[in-house]
Write a protein that binds this DNA or RNA. Structure first.
Lengths: 237, 237
DNA sequence: CGCCTGGTTGACTAATGTCAAATTGGGTGG
DNA sequence: CCACCCAATTTGACATTAGTCAACCAGGCG
């Protein structure tokens, strides 16, 4: 685990002002609890391409994403990579069952997270069991995303996967209040390919085809969904 | 949702004698809590090929599996199916985020489950928050299984998927004390195919190839792992 | 200005899916 | 007890999709 490229900024009352509080597990806390929470969380800024933690690292902390996108991935011994998800502001990552992380987490572009050290956080949870309900909700939501992802990986064609990814990503951005006409895609084509179980070439070809068909327009940094209805139909939702 | 093929047998002190208690979320409960728990759970027997609930049903209950195997699956509108998992004794299913189930659950062979109605269970959890920790553990474990599954679906070849499935299934059976020289496979080839994102034909061919190569022997009801080491290597663990 | 990285395109290949037929095995009724 | 029937599984021939390898292109930065 390396934290080069990261800087730590404590802020005792920061949680009270946190812009993504209502989206995160902290949304369940009252003012008193928030102050206590603030004391055990550290805001950390990560620069682009910085690892937050790596598969197999000793899991000593969990993280709340407050800004930016984090790529979660697993590697096979021969180097094949599967991106298992992307974390957005409000998401909670790193609660490993077992004492090592089961996947790697890397910043895509600049990122802000709140780090929660395992022991103090566990004590906090013990004395504020209400937050467990919220953590359960988050785990369930993550599980549902994983299940949808499995359907894509197992049963959809390349074109359907790409369409489903674009629609799903748009929906997630929408859900955290980042709706926009053009769907911002901070991750590389390779990341999309590794997420969808395809090759870069296939992703590129498929995006080109969707553009030729008038479903999207490829713009720098993302795509514009021209025919969201058709994209949803292609996704075989 | 249909419960034809199911019969309900209440049993007030049943939980105290439950053979899989230590494997299930109930493992965290003391005797007093267990008695209370027993009052809000109903033992239900399902015969083979009976649905426990279906994708989209109103989610009014969660279930503890005590005996048998349950297939969890999702359908695309055109009928393509993805099996997202199999539940074994000790597993806890049906905590939907949202008020509808996100997948279908069907008995494979005869099954025993404990049904927990949503409202009473929620009240129980409220007054016994300790069980939330255990539920979190279970959710994390399920998430890890899902993540491994995504790696198989996205990045492994047909042969690797089948090998990884056999090894993983054996390990799960082992973990619940059902270790055996021959790995029992209660699900059909079609179920395995839908789990692995392959076709029945490919699964069949691949099993035949593994047998030709001396890795397994196909026996009625399962396979015998002749060369577990090689199977694990093939799985590209 | 030109390199370097990420992205796109093209030609060809390999893996898996499709369709069809043959085989096995378990269960049922005679 | 045996014969038959049906469903599940296996096998074969062929089609299709996505992968591979290689070349090309574009934009950002030294």
């Amino acid at each position: 685990m390396s934290h080069s490229g990261s800087s730590r900024l404590d802020s005792d009352a920061g949680c009270l002002l946190c812009a993504v509080r209502s989206l995160s597990i902290c949304g369940a806390l009252d003012e008193r609890e928030l102050r206590e929470f603030a004391r055990l969380s550290q805001r950390i800024r990560l620069s682009s391409r910085t690892p937050l933690f790596s598969e197999g690292d000793h899991a000593d902390a969990a993280y709340n994403v407050s800004e930016g996108t984090i790529r979660l991935s697993k590697l096979l011994p021969d180097g094949r990579r599967q991106v298992i998800g992307f974390s957005l502001p409000g998401d909670f990552i790193g609660v490993a069952s077992g004492d090592c992380y089961g996947f790697s987490a890397d910043a895509i572009g600049p990122v802000m997270v709140c780090r929660l050290m395992k022991q103090p956080f566990a004590r906090f949870v013990e004395s504020n069991p209400g937050i467990l309900l919220r953590m359960n909700d988050f785990a369930q939501r993550e599980l549902m995303l994983a299940q949808d992802h499995m359907v894509s990986l197992g049963r959809r064609s390349a074109e359907e996967r790409v369409a489903a990814f674009l629609v799903g990503w748009r929906n997630r951005l929408q859900a955290i209040g980042r709706a926009a006409k053009t769907v911002y895609l901070p991750m590389s084509r390779q990341d999309i390919a590794d997420y969808l179980g395809l090759t870069v070439e296939t992703v590129s070809r498929t995006l080109t085809k969707l553009e030729r068909d008038g479903v999207i327009v490829i713009v720098p940094g993302g795509v514009r969904l021209m025919d969201a209805r058709r994209a949803e139909a292609l996704a075989a939702a």
